[in-house]
């Protein structure tokens, strides 16, 4: 059985990790590569780097970072943030990113999804979607949630799939940062209406939230940032919790532990 993926997200600004870094056992807590290696050892299933560097002039820093990460990290990683066109995608993939995630640019120019998936393969193209609840529906928003688009969520996710996206990274802007749990209804409705994997994002505060969105929300993977960065919960602990609850999860310690229990 395919396992559910646990994906930590690192916010990167000018080549450094920003936001909530409390890893006492790391030499340099702001070093993305060190943090990425740490998460690989902790058995994160994938990683997402979200580049929030504002200035275009400093964009080459992320390319260098991707190159160095690819030399040291041997789990898949996705890079997102500020990707505008095929050229941006090309440079990130060539530098060693396994996937890129496009958000605002995909809404402004949906054909970018098609061109990119034809050129680089669907499995390299993640479309990130930010959604806010409006009455009984959700609207797609862009520019970090500041701009409404008038797009209804289901229309957009179906279009995104049709254009060749390999995956959807779905963030509830209502839940993001609240630590009150993912938007289960939003995730469920999206996951049931597309045949590509859906990564749920926004709102993780405790392991139960991950469980809920994987089971009730039918997510294929979960993205979380602060609960891991702040060291409130470690990935092995969260995985152990999900495994105990019967979710298929990659647990390298599984055999060792069951052997221990038997012995």
């Amino acid at each position: 059985m395919l396992t559910k993926r646990i994906i930590p997200c690192l916010d990167i600004k000018e080549g450094r990790v920003v936001k909530g870094i409390k890893f006492v056992n790391l030499i340099d807590t702001g070093d993305p590569i060190e943090l990425a290696s740490f998460y690989e050892k902790e058995e994160a299933d994938e990683l997402v780097f979200l580049d929030i560097t504002a200035s275009w002039e400093k964009r080459n820093i992320i390319i260098e970072l991707v190159e160095k990460t690819a030399e040291k990290v041997f789990i898949p990683f996705t890079v997102g943030g500020g990707i505008r066109n095929l050229e941006d995608i090309y440079y990130l993939l060539r530098a060693g990113a396994d996937k890129v995630s496009i958000n605002t640019a995909a809404v402004l120019n949906p054909l970018l999804i098609q061109e990119a998936s034809l050129k680089f393969g669907s499995s390299t193209i993640v479309v990130a979607i930010d959604a806010v609840k409006i009455d009984s529906d959700w609207e797609v928003v862009i520019n970090g949630g500041r701009t409404g688009t008038g797009l209804r969520i289901l229309n957009w996710v179906k279009k995104v799939e049709r254009l060749g996206a390999g995956e959807i990274l779905l963030t509830s802007m209502d839940k993001d940062g609240t630590k009150e749990g993912y938007d289960i209804k939003l995730t469920k409705i999206v996951s049931e209406n597309v045949n590509i994997p859906v990564i749920a994002s926004g709102g993780a505060g405790k392991p139960e939230h991950l469980y809920e969105v994987l089971i009730k929300g039918k997510a294929d993977a979960v993205l979380a940032a602060s609960i891991f960065h702040n060291k409130e919960y470690t990935i092995p602990k969260v995985k152990e919790f999900l495994w105990q609850k019967g979710i298929e999860i990659r647990l390298a310690g599984e055999k060792i532990r069951s052997e221990k229990n038997n012995g």
Partner: peptide
Amino acid sequence: PASVKCPHLGWNK
């Protein structure tokens, strides 16, 4: 088959 999500993406045994 169409009964599973495609691609088969992630960690499997």
